[in-house]
């Protein structure tokens, strides 16, 4: 592109406003959060400082590093659950449904729940799993159990199932896209060479759909690792996630430096997972080519 005076003028005419906006609401706040993560907490608020005490506390105090591990574990389980639920559906969509209109309809039907209020989707699981909830009353009504069970709600199982439910469409979309991209000729070739259906699936279809699975896993993992709404609604007292602790530190605990440090850890985890999956996807692409 030629950088004539006119182009430069046009560029700044267009870009000055957005540049100021993005700096003020995005760049500056991130930098401030990073700064505060080095501050020292001092009653009633905090004082400017540069020390790593907040980060050290996150590593040393089990209260905090256990929360980080728990978040990673829950996010991983949500990713795996969403994968198990989504793969057959995505496979059916891409391979088994012949009518393109029906396929589009089902695909849209898969995505629609994503646009139904997030909060309401978490809330409805609370009504389903609660001790006076729908699942319990159903089981008692049909005589399967006599006493309402408190086993369903307020634990990590409830968190995983709720978040898997909320984020499943994010798995279906990329898996479907990658399955659809596999040329049918490769499947036919595998069958011509004598491989059965299961072997063809394991050796051809599944490996070629891994980029989609990876993308879906990245979405579901990152979304659940940073969630604090579902954990607060269905997780119960011993299921705090990183974001819950961040919220507490910025709320009633009034320890912004520690909250910022934990926020930076969360930011780092998410960016690391995205970068890693990007690398893996690229490496895989070269292998296949």
């Amino acid at each position: 592109m030629k950088h004539s005076t006119r182009t430069i003028r046009d560029f700044w005419l267009l870009f000055t406003g957005p540049a100021i906006w993005w700096s003020l609401v995005l760049l500056v706040p991130y930098v401030i959060m990073l700064m505060i993560s080095f501050y020292t907490r001092k009653f009633p608020f905090h004082v400017p400082d540069f020390q790593f005490g907040n980060y050290l506390k996150l590593i040393e105090d089990p209260q905090y590093y256990l929360v980080i591990f728990r978040s990673l574990k829950i996010a991983f389980l949500v990713g795996v659950t969403a994968f198990v639920i989504s793969y057959p559906l995505a496979y059916c969509l891409a391979r088994k449904i012949k009518s393109s209109r029906f396929r589009l309809l089902l695909y849209v039907a898969t995505i629609i729940p994503l646009w139904v209020s997030y909060l309401l989707r978490a809330y409805t699981w609370k009504t389903i799993l609660g001790s006076e909830g729908i699942l319990n009353s159903f089981l008692m009504w049909t005589g399967i159990i006599q006493e309402p069970s408190t086993f369903f709600l307020y634990n990590q199982f409830a968190m995983v199932i709720t978040m898997a439910y909320i984020f499943t469409p994010f798995m279906v979309m990329p898996v479907y896209a990658s399955l659809e991209k596999i040329p049918p000729s490769l499947i036919e070739a595998s069958k011509d060479l004598g491989a059965g259906r299961i072997k063809t699936f394991l050796k051809v279809t599944l490996p070629l759909s891994m980029p989609g699975v990876l993308a879906g896993f990245t979405f579901t993992f990152c979304l659940s690792a940073g969630d604090f709404i579902s954990p607060a609604l269905v997780g119960g007292p011993y299921s705090n996630m990183v974001a819950n602790v961040v919220a507490t530190q910025f709320g009633i605990a009034m320890n912004w430096p520690l909250g910022s440090a934990l926020g930076m850890v969360l930011l780092f985890i998410v960016l690391a997972v995205i970068t890693l999956s990007d690398r893996l996807e690229r490496a895989g692409r070269i292998n296949l080519a």
């Binding site: 609401v25 995005l26 959060m33 940073g226 912004w256 926020g263 969360l266 998410v270």
Partner: peptide, 23 residues
């Protein structure tokens, strides 16, 4: 710049929330 701009939909919402609160 392009990466920065999509950060709010990449990162968990809570990060956008607390960083703007701090600002």
């Amino acid at each position: 710049f392009r990466r920065l701009v999509i950060l709010p939909i990449t990162l968990p919402g809570i990060i956008t929330g607390v960083s703007i609160l701090a600002f």
